[in-house]
Simulated scan of single mutants.
Amino acid sequence: MQSLPTFILSAVGFFFLYYFEITNLWLIAFFGVLMVAFAIFPTLNILLWEKDIPKIERFLLKNKKNLTFYTVYALANGLDEEIKSSTEKLVSKSKQRSRQALYKIGEALHFKDLEAANEELSYITAPAYRAYYEGFIRLEEGDLAHANRIIDEIQTTWMKNTLMAERERLAGQLDEAIHYAEAAKKNSKGLQYYTLHKTFE
């Protein structure tokens, strides 16, 4: 859908450059950067800022050949076989052990395989995500004291609220869980918002 407007704008722009005989490299480079930004903005908007669930879902399904996007869709919608298949493919394609760990831990937590999830924790290099996933694991293990220490230390608002929602859900405090779930959604956007929305449904 975006390729036609991009093509039209590019054609008009190049005609403009040619017609006015603009040869300044800075202006040409600026135009090139503008074209790239115009082409990728719709995708970035969906990934990072969008909050329209049907729109995000249409994007994910339209781009289902992209394993990363389809894995997000499969995890959010609880498609067990697709989760296993796409995670296996992502892991085999990735050469970064930390990225492999993120794929594997997402799958392990979905299937409540806490042993497998624990094995992947040390390979996650981003401290915030390592703490976030460890918080989930400790909550599922019933280690509330450890989980609470992790929750207290987490700085990212949506991560903290998501863990608090899970803690209250496991404790049977559904009103509190809903409160924290809504707060987590409010402080997230794009694919993260979509994932949280589908999880909290």
Results as ranks from 00 to 15, higher is better:
Arg167Val: 02
Arg58Glu: 05
Tyr18Thr: 07
Phe20Met: 13
Glu115Thr: 15
Ala183Pro: 01
Ile8Leu: 10
Arg169Gly: 08
Phe16Leu: 10
Tyr18Val: 08
Leu114Tyr: 14
Glu21Ala: 07
Leu27Trp: 15
Lys65Phe: 10
Lys160Ser: 05
Arg130Thr: 01
Pro5Ala: 02
Glu119Gly: 07
Asn66Val: 07
Trp26Arg: 14
Ile150Leu: 01
Ala117Arg: 13
Thr162Met: 01
Gln192Ser: 08
Leu27Lys: 15
Lys186Ala: 12
Arg99Asn: 11
Lys84His: 13
Glu82Ser: 15
Gln173Pro: 07
Tyr19Thr: 15
Val33Thr: 13
Ile150Cys: 03
Pro42His: 15
Phe38Gly: 07
Glu134His: 07
Ala126Thr: 08
Glu115Cys: 05
Phe16Glu: 11
Thr43Gly: 01
Ala183Trp: 00
Gly135Phe: 14
His110Trp: 00
Ala181Glu: 04
Gln96Met: 07
Gly32Cys: 15
Leu44Ile: 08
Lys186Ile: 08
Arg167Gly: 09
Gly135Leu: 11
Ala76Lys: 05
Thr71Asn: 11
Gly135Lys: 07
Ile124Cys: 13
Pro54Glu: 12
Thr156Val: 08
Phe59Ser: 09
Glu119Tyr: 10
Val91Tyr: 08
Glu82Cys: 08
Tyr180Asn: 10
Glu120Asp: 14
Lys93Gly: 02
Ala74Leu: 02
Pro54Ser: 11
Phe69Thr: 01
Ala29Phe: 12
Thr43Asp: 10
Lys89Cys: 10
Leu75Lys: 07
Ala184Glu: 01
Ala128Val: 09
Thr156Phe: 11
Asn77Gly: 12
Leu67Pro: 00
Leu9Val: 05
Phe15Leu: 12
Leu144Ala: 04
Ile151His: 10
Tyr19Trp: 14
Phe59Glu: 00
Leu121Val: 11
Tyr129Ala: 05
Thr6Ser: 00
Phe41Pro: 08
Lys64Ile: 00
Pro127Ala: 01
Asn187Gly: 02
Met164Thr: 09
Ile124Arg: 12
Ala74Met: 06
Glu107Ile: 09
Ala171Phe: 07
Gly190Arg: 01
Glu21Asn: 13
Ala101Pro: 00
Lys89Trp: 00
Lys185Met: 12
Thr43Leu: 04
Leu191Gln: 02
Ala101Phe: 05
Ile105Gly: 06
Leu48Asn: 15
Pro127Ile: 02
Met35Asp: 02
Tyr70Gly: 03
Gly172Cys: 03
Asn77His: 09
Gly78Asp: 13
Leu196Ile: 13
Leu47Arg: 15
Trp49Tyr: 09
Met164Asp: 09
Ser85Arg: 10
Ile83Phe: 09
Trp26Ala: 14
Glu82Ala: 12
Glu176Phe: 11
Phe200Met: 03
Pro127Trp: 00
Val91Met: 05
Leu144Asn: 05
Asp52Glu: 06
Gln96Gly: 04
Trp158Gly: 12
Asn118Trp: 15
Phe69Tyr: 12
Leu163Pro: 14
Tyr133Asn: 05
Arg130Tyr: 01
Ile8Arg: 06
Ala128Lys: 09
Phe41Ile: 06
Lys95Asn: 06
Ile83Asn: 08
Ser188Leu: 00
Arg169Trp: 03
Ser92Lys: 13
Asp80Asn: 11
Leu114Ile: 10
Lys112Met: 04
Lys93Glu: 15
Leu67Ile: 00
Glu21Gln: 14
Leu25Cys: 06
Lys62Asp: 06
